[in-house]
Amino acid sequence: MTPDYTLAELCIAAAAEAWRGDGEILASGLGLVPRLAAGLARLTFAPDLMLTDGECLLVAEPVPVGRRPADYRPPVEGWLPFRRVFDLLWSGRRHAMTMPTQIDRSGAINISYIGGTFQKPKIQLLGVRGIPGNTINHPCSFFVPDHSRRTFVERVDMASGAGYDPARWEPGVRRDLHALRLVVTNLAVLDFAGPDHAMRLRSIHPGVTLDQVEAATSFPLARAADLGTTPAPSAEQLRLIRTVLDPHDARATVFKK
């Protein structure tokens, strides 16, 4: 039977769970699926979450993705230029979901470069951006659309973000502000509740096998005691995704065929 939802919709619903119970903080979803997931959380079980228009306005309702009617005005409730984003994230009142190029067992992520050396990278990416500040100051989650041994690596080529590996933490550095929550991929949902905060498999997407997930990961994965199948999005979640958050179906482009 053909499922009545897409993989992107499953991932959006699974990723929304990252913000459950977060209260009145800024939910930053950077990238299409994280952004739709933050909007979905806000419209369903996390009504106090704060959202932006993707630039510098706080908006009372999620701004739909893509072209909008000519008379559309974002429902502005506040002003959040970059300097205030920094103030806010250093204060801890934010939970961001980003899309790393590499991630390791300890949750260290890389968006800076792949291969070569720091002085002469083989493939230059963005640079560390705000990831060092995000990961050490407030909860972070991740979305990885291509779960593979290239993305789930033994050791990231550059640790742009802080993971749980104790060897990377100097004595005296505050670790209590650091919290890595959820990793959603095209195959599974993971967290960091394994031994010593190691990455742990929490649920596997419908139609995917445990072998597939393990074969696509360069390190051993802990498993949740109640490891199960990622729940399908509800009819109401699908309605919100399809008609309110992403009316032009930008999410159809997330997974390359």
Binding site: G130, T135, I136, M158, A159, S160, A162, G163, V173
Partner: peptide, 8 residues
């Protein structure tokens, strides 16, 4: 704090 516990 930003930069601590990373390769930065």
């Amino acid at each position: 704090r930003a930069g601590l516990a990373t390769d930065v």
